[in-house]
């Protein structure tokens, strides 16, 4: 027992625990950003200008047909290259060699991201930053799909009434449509939140040292040569712990979302809202 408590608090384990924070940070950052992407995407899909609407609809459609892992692996490299390419064009305008030389992607030293001389933490943060953008793009498309559906579910009479009151299109959108669409979008969004939670271990594939990385590292067989705490192959137990961690996250989210749904249903013209009204008046 003593051994275990020492083992579980040694240096590398703190990195393991810190990686849980990384996952939570990813969730905390990605969720609002993806929601923002989704909102813009849904607005674009609703637009009356055809090219904008095609753009929005295309964005929604393309992410659905293809496995999300493929997108993750694609965007991480693609975004990195896009950033470096842009910097290369701005910072080294007199560079004449082509950027793609056979199998290499060459940019000038000053355009490297992060700079070769940058400290370790900058590299890690940059990797994390890329991961956040990738997650946001992919989940933004999913969110756009859900929000687009939510916007269309708002009863049309509401919008007509707004028009009858002399509201402009912009006013109708912000004052009538947006406040009401959430309750219709929430089931889809909560599903999305669950999917997002369950997608976080994919951080590992993006090269971030996340919980999967550490569970593999720490669980592997250790001999007394390298550590004071030799043990056999414990990776199974580490992953069992991760499994339980995720189950806990799911359960907590389920309960939280249930509460949120209840609050949002207040005073809405839906079955849920009607139920609440009866509960309070009875």
């Amino acid at each position: 027992m003593r051994w275990l408590s020492c083992y579980l608090t040694n240096g590398v384990h703190w990195s393991f625990y810190a990686s849980f924070l990384k996952v939570l940070a990813l969730l905390a950052v990605t969720a609002p950003v993806a929601l923002g992407f989704g909102f813009v995407g849904a607005m674009a899909a609703r637009s009356h200008v055809p090219p904008v609407s095609w753009l929005g609809k295309g964005y929604i459609a393309i992410v659905r047909g293809v496995p999300d892992i493929a997108f993750f692996m694609f965007f991480v490299i693609a975004l990195d290259q896009a950033f470096e390419w842009t910097r290369h064009k701005i910072l080294c305008p007199d560079w004449t060699d082509p950027i793609r030389q056979g199998n290499d992607f060459l940019v000038c030293q000053a355009a490297k991201l992060p700079l070769g001389s940058a400290p370790e933490w900058v590299h890690e943060t940059y990797g994390f930053f890329l991961a956040v953008i990738t997650f946001s793009i992919v989940f933004g498309a999913f969110a756009a799909n859900v929000l687009f559906g939510g916007m269309r579910a708002v009863p049309h009479a509401q919008l007509e009434t707004a028009e009858a009151y002399g509201m402009s299109r912009r006013q109708t959108f912000w004052k009538i449509l947006v406040p009401q669409m959430w309750v219709y979008a929430l089931p889809g969004l909560s599903n999305l939140w669950m999917v997002l939670i369950k997608a976080t271990p994919l951080l590992f594939l993006l090269g971030v040292e996340d919980i999967v990385y550490w569970a593999r590292e720490l669980g592997g067989t250790k001999t007394s040569k390298f550590t004071q705490y030799p043990h056999g192959d414990w990776r199974m137990w580490y992953f069992l712990f991760l499994l339980i961690f995720y189950l806990g996250m799911t359960r907590v989210s389920e309960i939280g979302l249930e509460k949120l749904m209840r609050r949002l249903s207040h005073g809405q013209a839906t079955a849920g809202g009607e139920l609440l009204r009866k509960e309070t008046t009875a």
Partner: peptide, 22 residues
Amino acid sequence: IFLFRGSPLFIQFFFAYFFFLS
């Protein structure tokens, strides 16, 4: 159903692999 829907497939793969390994 809760066990398999509530946890990431990715972690399930890892766990199963190491489980079978041991």
